[in-house]
């Protein structure tokens, strides 16, 4: 199916309405499978059962970065290709990304309590997640402040592109700073250092989170398209009334 078909919001809406229930069902299934695997996954010999927060924390961190990636592509779509759906995609992704970042921060903080003895430590990775969260909030504030949706989404697109510089910093901050936090060991040079009994549920959960993201994203895009239609219908209503009088 060529991408041109998706450019038509009406076509997009009908596709989303057909796909969304399946996507939601798949999300639930993968989460159920993942949670069952987590139950059976071994506890850490030092941290005990608290290590299982990882299965929420790590996928949320991945998704929060992937979501900015989606926003970056959408921003390019808005500014360069002028694809009509891309600013809808960007606007719909921002609150979801902020929510995933927030989940990552909260779970990191809860994980930190038994591990470090305090809820918050200014460790490099958590701190850069916090900066990412602030960037998300800035984008949300920009959408919130702009009364004209078109101008707001162009401004947010520029901010998203600028902010994309932040994502490599998060990635590489792990290697720059040696901290209290677990070093990124999944894709370390020379293969994975994690036992398969932990890795498989983690990957399943990451898949579940990704499905969850797309479910929420499509639903949010649909809502945004409908919201814009309501807006333009009300504008037309005001205009028609003005014309009816003359």
């Amino acid at each position: 199916m060529p991408i041109i078909d998706l450019a038509n919001p009406t076509r997009f809406l009908s596709i989303v309405n057909r796909v969304l229930p399946w996507l939601a069902a798949a999300t639930v299934l993968v989460f159920a499978f993942g949670l069952a695997r987590i139950m059976n996954a071994p506890d850490d010999y030092q941290q005990g059962a608290t290590v299982k927060i990882m299965y929420l924390h790590v996928p949320a961190a991945w998704l929060s970065m992937m979501c900015w990636g989606v926003m970056t592509v959408a921003a390019l779509g808005t500014l360069v290709w002028r694809h009509p759906l891309s600013d809808v995609a960007g606007k719909a992704a921002a609150p979801i990304g902020a929510a995933f970042t927030f989940i990552c921060l909260i779970t990191g903080s809860l994980w930190g309590r038994p591990t470090w003895g305090t809820y918050w430590v200014w460790d490099a990775r958590l701190t850069s997640m916090l900066v990412l969260f602030l960037l998300y909030l800035g984008v949300l504030a920009l959408y919130w402040t702009a009364e004209d949706p078109g101008r707001g989404s162009r401004a947010a697109a520029i901010l998203a592109l600028v902010g994309a510089i932040n994502i490599p910093i998060i990635k590489f901050s792990v290697e720059y700073w040696n901290t209290l936090h677990q070093p990124a060991s999944l894709f370390r040079r020379g293969g994975s250092a994690i036992d398969p009994s932990i890795l498989i549920p983690l990957l399943v959960m990451a898949g579940g989170f990704t499905l969850l993201f797309f479910t929420l994203h499509f639903a949010a895009m649909r809502n945004e398209i409908l919201r814009r239609r309501v807006r333009s219908m009300r504008l037309i209503q005001a205009q028609e009334l003005a014309e009816a009088r003359t």
Binding site: E147, R234, L235, Q237, A238, Q239, L241, A242, R245
Partner: peptide
């Protein structure tokens, strides 16, 4: 002033004359 049908519309949507 002939605006009764627009009572619930945000003022942002109005034209200069409205």
């Amino acid at each position: 002033v002939d605006l009764a049908p627009l009572a619930d519309l945000p003022a942002a949507y109005l034209s200069a004359g409205q």
